[in-house]
Design a protein around this nucleic acid. Structure first.
Lengths: 211, 211
DNA sequence: ATTTATCTGTGAAATATTTCACAGATAAAC
DNA sequence: GTTTATCTGTGAAATATTTCACAGATAAAT
């Protein structure tokens, strides 16, 4: 049985989860849909609707209980389980991702790095174990890696994505400047710097009176 | 007069523009909505509708003329003019962005880098001129920088975004792990690694039979 | 205990977006 | 020059999503 939660609602709820973790860390216990609206830019109506799609929380006079909300969203989408991530392609961008301090304080653990250039790997200073690309399928299975951050050069992007998929990866965050089309239920998000800048330009143009 | 192009349509058209540039480089002259559909994962119907919202191209038996399509989308959204970008925060991630080879081959020029740590800046090897953060408003105006890639540490993200805005920036790509809420027509896109990984997880969960 | 203020939860209405089906256009084939 | 095949462009229909308005719930205040 598949309940249909709209993708935009999933995106908002994911953002709410991160926000809720942050508010919790600040020591608050309750938060209202109106407050969440101000902090996110979403309409309070919309936030309540989104939350009601995945469950119900005891209602009070001063908003949601933060921990209950965290648990509801977290359990619905699987944010409460630890997950292993690898970084593929250890050029400057990939190397920067390896040492991302946020990942460590989240449910994601950066468990391995892969590259095809052994010399380069020897130059990188990190606590994460590094392997040659030819071991990638094997290591993904052996270590139980579920997600990959890909930052390889464009010529190798499609091929590398295929290897990740054949290794059993669940999702890929692709920073290589090549559009990888999702298939077979593998989640793929392409984050292409130039395109993100273009989108800012386009949204700006659409917003101004020019269009 | 403001024609309302849906945001999802703007996103698709932006992606199509990048794709069209790539196809053009490969030497093709024509491309049909069906082919674009395969390459992007969008429905051909939807692609035609999106394009028809911003204009009309001479119809033929073998699809769109690639150059006409490039010009239509490019002129509509302002992709044909050169634009200057700065990188703010030159830790590993920011430093990697500074040397992004794609930006240079696009309409975006990485024109400046900013950081608050002078020692660190002296260690960075790049052709891009680097300045101290305290000069940021001045330099944005003086150099005509329109967009910023932000990768500062979380404590400084909000403050830095405000300085960028007061300097007259049009859009910010924020890689710092803090959600910056857009306002005053300034375009802001938050790209927060952990959240992107969460989104992959959530979409996967929603896609499987669990929800 | 009753009133008051302030929440959430949710069907229904309003919008927005996508999909469809086909008319019109073009060029190749015969 | 007529037919055929293959496109795009677009109103209309079908869906999807957001917004709204208010019932129901809770707890503080009196």
């Amino acid at each position: 049985m598949k309940i249909n939660i709209p993708v935009p609602a999933i995106e908002r709820l994911t953002k709410l989860f991160s926000l809720v973790l942050k508010i919790k860390k600040e020591g608050k216990e309750k938060v209202s849909s109106a407050e969440l609206g101000i902090l996110t830019g979403f309409h309070a109506h919309n936030i309540r609707k989104d939350i009601s799609m995945i469950g119900t929380l005891e209602s009070g006079k001063d908003g949601y209980n933060i921990e209950s909300l965290e648990n509801l969203i977290g359990n619905t989408f699987g944010f409460k389980e630890k997950k292993k991530v690898c970084v593929v392609g250890l050029d400057m961008l990939g190397a920067a991702m390896l040492n991302n301090p946020d990942a460590g304080s989240s449910e994601f653990e950066i468990a391995a790095g892969f590259d095809s250039n052994t010399n380069r790997m020897e130059m990188i200073s990190t606590k994460v174990p590094l392997f040659h690309l030819y071991e990638i399928e094997e290591k993904i299975k052996e270590m139980g890696i579920e997600y990959a951050i890909m930052a390889v050069n464009p010529e190798n992007a499609v091929k590398t994505a295929e290897r990740l998929i054949s290794g059993g990866i669940k999702g890929i965050l692709n920073f290589s400047p090549v559009n990888i089309v999702p298939k077979n239920g593998i989640q793929i998000k392409n984050i292409y710097l130039v395109e993100e800048l273009r989108l800012l330009t386009a949204l700006g143009a659409a917003n101004s009176q020019q269009l």
